[in-house]
């Protein structure tokens, strides 16, 4: 009997089978490694007075500052990062390899160093900052704008790298098809390329937002720490840790839960529309 003749009656479908343990075992270890430390937070949290602590004005202010700055940061990264990713993926300008390497620098550099670098550039005596101060009376450090800049510095690579990967994976022949239909390069980008790589852009934006939300080192160095103005949740956690570890746990949990809720909602939306 060969397989060409289909047997009459119900088809016997091959069962998918159990996933192989050489994959499952390391995966379980991976999950445990990521989740168990969070469990530590949950177990040690002072649940009885959680409600009171969470609604303290300083906590709410820090939470609001974190969410709003991370969102503005993501928007900035999209505005500048998507075109940058396009240039890296689709053009061949001199020094492109160098630029690609430079884009990854914030991933390697400790965020505190990034903060110092931003101070040296945009600080009151910085390369650019001194002119901003002298000509326009603008000082960037110690403002919410500085928080956004610090977050953008560390989060941008996540967006650029995801979007560049999506662009390189996209079938360029669709862009050629659009060109033969009379679409100029900008139209091709907005009407064809961007919709095609939208999942990559979405993934990059989510990574970018999450990274911005957790940003600490560059923020505290460049933007400082002042409640309501530049004290984001991670900074509030760090400060609380110095005196009141329980408060730090509460703040960490709040940050964790809010970011999980936002990511889950975004993901849901994403899966439904894609």
């Amino acid at each position: 009997m060969t397989g060409s003749a289909a047997p009459a009656g119900p088809v016997l479908r091959a069962r998918p089978g159990r996933p192989p343990w050489p994959l499952v075992l390391p995966a379980l270890v991976g999950v445990a490694f990521l989740v168990l430390p969070m469990l530590g937070l949950v177990v040690r949290a002072p649940w009885p007075d959680m409600g009171r602590r969470v609604t303290e004005p300083d906590v709410l202010a820090a939470l609001w500052l974190s969410l709003s700055t991370a969102t503005v940061t993501t928007a900035l990264c999209l505005v500048f990062g998507v075109p940058l990713a396009w240039l890296l993926a689709r053009t061949d300008f001199p020094g492109r390899r160098l630029v690609r390497a430079l884009v990854a620098v914030p991933l390697v550099v400790p965020p505190v160093v990034g903060g110092v670098a931003l101070l040296l550039l945009l600080g009151r005596n910085g390369l650019l900052g001194r002119y901003l101060d002298a000509w326009f009376g603008i000082t960037v450090p110690f403002t919410p704008a500085a928080v956004v800049l610090a977050q953008t510095f560390v989060a941008m690579p996540f967006l650029v790298i995801s979007v560049e990967g999506a662009l390189r994976g996209a079938d360029r022949r669709y862009e050629e098809a659009a060109a033969t239909l009379g679409a100029g390069r900008v139209t091709v980008f907005t009407r064809v390329t961007l919709p095609m790589v939208l999942p990559g852009v979405g993934a990059g934006a989510i990574l970018c937002w999450a990274r911005a939300l957790g940003e600490f080192g560059a923020t505290i160095t460049f933007a400082g720490n002042f409640p309501g103005t530049t004290q984001t949740m991670p900074l509030a956690v760090y400060m609380a840790m110095q005196r009141d570890p329980e408060a730090a746990i509460v703040l960490s949990l709040v940050l964790l839960l809010v970011s999980l809720a936002v990511l889950a909602t975004l993901r849901e939306k994403w899966v439904n529309t894609a």
Partner: peptide
Amino acid sequence: TPVTYEGDVRA
């Protein structure tokens, strides 16, 4: 009222 409350004296 400072512009920033730093986490350590070196900062």
